[in-house]
Design a protein around this nucleic acid. Structure first.
Lengths: 343, 343
DNA sequence: CCCTATTTGAGGTACGTACCTCATAGCAAG
DNA sequence: CTTGCTATGAGGTACGTACCTCAAATAGGG
């Protein structure tokens, strides 16, 4: 027994193939009660449209673009590697994935890029950019023009609540990620009074802020003997980073933990003073943090799987193009904890 | 520009569509150098077979069976729930997934079940059963009859080395999982001399053995102040479990950690003596262990995502049916660490 | 060079759906 | 009744591939 086809559906509904087609593809010129008859027949016989055949017939293909910031760290490079991998793997499924870079500091330029996207050449975009009014407007206009969009890794609305509203966000809950880091820090650090140094690229990014909030909440509630020092911003500047590190460890000899919020942990960790052995917790898996885990310098990493992120974004975009539901459990991005043993 | 079709391929190779078809589908009656010409043309123009169209033409569908032990715990129930979910989600892709139960204690019966599978009704099986000579033979005969098979969650050959040989195994590296548990135990437990209790359903199962080995290796090497007591077997027997727990905590008042190897942590944890607050690390996410994490009774869980397991098995089976490669990075099952914050 | 076996080509139908054209049925207003 | 409209049916072609048949070309052996 194979699945019922449109022909079966036409027979079951007592209409012709043409009418079935009109109903299935939302064409005009069908009376309401006829539509209802067909819809009921769909339920009755359990008709499921054969997507392969449909896509074949309309020679449909999916063209998606990942809009990523031009200024990228190693984590972003891994993401891009996964996009390339996916673009290979998805060709079998008529899905083409490309990458375009944007100036993430300039909301106007981002909005302009979004505005320039042509529905004739692009079916969907995954946008990694800070949420700004301009960008939000540009996104709204995208959907009007029939281009699907998902927020990718950053730019979600609301705080700590992914997919608030109808907004689709691919990435982890950064508040929970920070809380996870906090819990591990609390358990790994000694039980005595001590301080924890927190480093960020910039605290303007929503991601960093939320991680920070989550981290502080757990430490403050459950590990009162630990004092979290005010977060310091490195601005990805080597000199500044070195100064911060030296100054912090000098004025606070009792620093027992180091939490690196940003996805580029390399710079701060190179400047941990010899002799100091703080518990280090950082984010994202990069060649550097991997090595750090293996040598024992880093105690734990809080990560999200770049491959999963990319494939999830693509699956969500495709589902939206087809007006389908996604499998929610598959698209939930997990907050992963990596230690040396489960690398 | 759309992808080249068989027609383009025929033109590029200077042969007819019929010959292209013969080459693509491994039919006889084509001279070797003609085959070569076509193969070269495939490379040259980058021809990729349109799987949707191919499956449509041969009205192919994939019918897979998950063979699971009849005696199941809550973790297995979650796996089954994911299979049901997947069977819904995969109907769109002409893939039908069902579950059959086997008596996991009886290798003969398992082998018989495998032998009774009909290639006319089944395209692939995911087998969750202990590896025995009979089962191994039966598996070999499966592939002779053209039924694909993967080992699912247990039954892998070799120790700690998934996919040893050409054997396909869907699941985690249990040695590494045990080592992960060991590392967490070492970091969570106090720095003073103390004992760790290890509980298993049975130590006959390879999974448990390997987890045990990994756990011991880490504790023995890096946390010499901790003593791992000989593992005790509960055999899923409530009375026996209670006795073990009581006896252990009585004769070893300095137990600081409890490692539950089996996927059903419920029974032992109900019998932790009041007043004792060992660091508890267990495996797999179930309603019970979730609650344990939330209340703080359980410090950490080592898990594998059932949904990922199921979908991965299905993808691998489908790829093998199509003689395709899988995306390795997607099929690697991660050893997940769950704490209260990243639940 | 002929005979035969093998290889190749030409052409068709099918899969399930989309999309198109044209014809006809039904209905209401004039 | 005719006119003009909408709703529906009938039938076709197309997508890219599989699989079939039959004829034609080619190769190799004697």
């Amino acid at each position: 027994m194979s699945r019922p086809t449109t022909k079966d559906l036409a027979r079951a509904a007592g209409v012709s193939l043409a009418t079935v087609d009109r109903v299935l593809n939302d064409r005009t010129g069908v009376r309401d009660d006829t539509v209802k008859r067909v819809t009921e027949a769909i339920e009755a016989i359990g008709f499921i449209r054969n997507l392969s055949a449909a896509n074949l017939a309309r020679s449909r293909s999916y063209r998606f673009v990942f809009l990523l910031p031009r200024s990228g760290d190693q984590f972003l490079n891994r993401v891009i590697a996964r996009i390339d991998e996916a673009s290979q793997a998805f060709t079998t499924e008529a899905t083409q994935v490309t990458v375009a870079r944007i100036e993430d500091e300039d909301p106007h330029q981002i909005a302009a890029t979004l505005g320039a996207l042509d529905p004739a050449t692009v079916d969907g975009v995954a946008i990694m950019a800070p949420e700004s009014p301009q960008v939000r407007d540009a996104k709204a206009r995208l959907s009007e023009r029939g281009i699907e969009a998902v927020a990718f890794l950053s730019g979600q609305i609301g705080s700590g609540h992914p997919t608030a509203g109808s907004e689709v966000f691919v990435g982890i809950d950064n508040y929970a990620a920070g809380a996870t880091a906090g819990r591990l820090m609390g358990r790994f650090a000694p039980d005595t009074d001590a301080k924890i140094l927190v480093l960020a690229d910039t605290l303007l990014a929503r991601d960093s802020l939320e991680r920070r909030r989550g981290f502080d909440a757990v430490i403050g509630r459950d590990y009162p003997h630990l004092t979290v020092l005010p977060a310091l911003e490195t601005h990805s500047d080597p000199t500044r980073t070195r100064q911060i590190m030296t100054a912090s460890f000098t004025s606070h000899p009792d620093i027992c933990g180091l939490y690196v919020l940003a996805s580029e942990a390399r710079m701060p960790l190179l400047h941990v003073p010899a002799g100091a052995h703080p518990v280090i917790i950082a984010h994202e898996r990069t060649p550097f943090t991997e090595t750090g885990l293996q040598t024992g310098q880093i105690a734990a990493l809080i990560t999200q799987d770049p491959g999963h992120l990319v494939r999830s974004a693509v699956r969500i975009l495709r589902a939206r193009c087809d007006h389908r539901e996604v499998l929610a459990s598959q698209e939930k991005i997990r907050i992963e904890i990596l230690i040396r043993e489960n690398l």
